[in-house]
């Protein structure tokens, strides 16, 4: 099976069940949505997929390979990349260095020698990828600025560019458009569509901006209180009673 597959994931913090039996499939070459009210457990699902949180039970597979026993960096090297809701940029580095590290971090990997000495072919590759990604995300003009000093919109693009520079086949994007204005969001969506179309990348998108979700995703999963409550096409989700009930009174953004 191509893409990311989550089966019956259950995550518990103490007595609290944050994720309760979620299953979903995010195939390659497509953008899949994951929505739900605040605190529904979306970020926890991401943390469990990337290894930052250990689920109590369930399976996570990428292209058929079981990821559960692997460490955070090992999962990343298998091809799962992510961004963070609160953005985890390398603030004291420049934009170009951030994007470079997107590729170099994986090349260094778990190999002490590769931390220090790059493979001969690496240098060329890194340069080309960095340049192309900066171009794709339209941030070439700020390449030499320090990431910590940028606006939220620019920082979101830098974080996206950093994961796009890596050798990931599946990206988990955690509310990438929060803090962006209308225009920036549209530009963001365009970059995502291109990355998917050009490279066959799979994307699992957690998002509160419904117009972004409805226009980019082919299939959408809805969770509430850690439980899956619905999944279907954007049209089906928009017309679902269950989804409306879950959002009613909460933040139907």
């Amino acid at each position: 099976m191509n893409g990311l597959e989550i089966r019956e994931m259950r995550v518990r913090f103490g007595g609290l069940t944050a994720v309760d039996g979620v299953s979903l499939t995010a195939p390659g070459g497509r953008i899949t949505g994951l929505i739900g009210p605040n605190g529904a457990g979306k970020t926890t699902i991401f943390n469990a997929c990337t290894g930052l949180v250990r689920p109590e039970s369930g399976q996570v597979r990428l292209d058929g390979e079981d990821l559960m026993g692997l460490s955070v960096p090992a999962r990343a090297r298998r091809g799962v990349g992510r961004t963070f809701q609160r953005m985890e940029l390398f603030d004291s580095l420049t934009v170009a260095e951030n994007v470079r590290l997107g590729r170099e971090a994986g090349q260094a990997g778990g190999n002490a020698v590769r931390h220090v000495v790059a493979r001969r072919s690496d240098g060329e590759q890194v340069r080309a990828v960095t340049e192309a990604t900066l171009e794709l995300c339209d941030i070439t003009h700020i390449a030499d600025r320090t990431a910590g000093a940028l606006s939220t919109g620019q920082r979101r693009l830098v974080e996206l560019a950093r994961t796009l520079a890596g050798r990931f086949s599946m990206l988990l994007l955690d509310e990438p458009s929060s803090g962006l204005d209308r225009y920036e969001t549209e530009r963001f969506a365009e970059i995502l569509r291109r990355a998917v179309a050009d490279r066959g990348l799979g994307i699992l998108l957690v998002e509160h901006d419904m117009s972004l979700v409805m226009t980019t995703c082919e299939h959408i999963y809805v969770v509430d209180f850690g439980r899956p409550i619905f999944d279907g096409t954007p049209i089906q989700v928009q017309t679902s009673e269950a989804v409306r009930a879950a959002y009613l009174g909460s933040d139907a953004a």
Partner: peptide, 24 residues
């Protein structure tokens, strides 16, 4: 060098560096 970038990256956000594939 690359190592310097990795170190500065680790200082700024070890979590990000790990999710990019480096065994910090």
């Amino acid at each position: 060098s690359r190592l310097g970038r990795l170190l500065r990256g680790m200082a700024d956000s070890p979590v990000a560096l790990a999710t990019l594939g480096t065994s910090v």
